[in-house]
Amino acid sequence: MLSDTEIAQITHELQQVPVKKAACIEALKIVQQERRWVSDESIEDIASLLDMSTAEVDSVATFYNLIFRRPVGRHVILLCDSISCYVMGYTKIQNKLMELLHIKYGQSTDDGRFTLLPNACLGTCDHAPALMIDNDLYRDLKEEELEKILKKYE
């Protein structure tokens, strides 16, 4: 069931759009903001709030790579794997992260702290390699700094 705050936020979005469906992505974002990921049940809830079918909502949800349809850790690490970061050696960062966290791409740490995902260009190519954890951008990364960065997240 959607929480009152989720419903309030989605209802607010509904007032901004000419047709209910148009609020679909906003609704998915709102739910993910609250729950970190979007479950089947949430898909159904959103669908009924927006007069859409669950299939239609999921069709949209599964298209976008930043809507998570499976549970993720408390913090999501998005490591840029695009061209400038490639040239500047993101694979070293990747290896180091995997070593520190004992997980591969798409996995979460056992303690549910982190999920590691590769991500397309973060738009900070002049400071490659780069990654984002939640809303924080880290640039000009060095392998040595990673441990300290990860420590900031509980």
Binding site: D40, I43, S53, T54, A55, E56, D58, S59, T62, F63
Partner: peptide
């Protein structure tokens, strides 16, 4: 109850 899911060469046609 039939739609297209996912993207690129993983698009899937079926039910939710």
């Amino acid at each position: 109850d039939l739609d297209v899911f996912a993207a690129h060469n993983h698009v899937y046609f079926g039910r939710q």
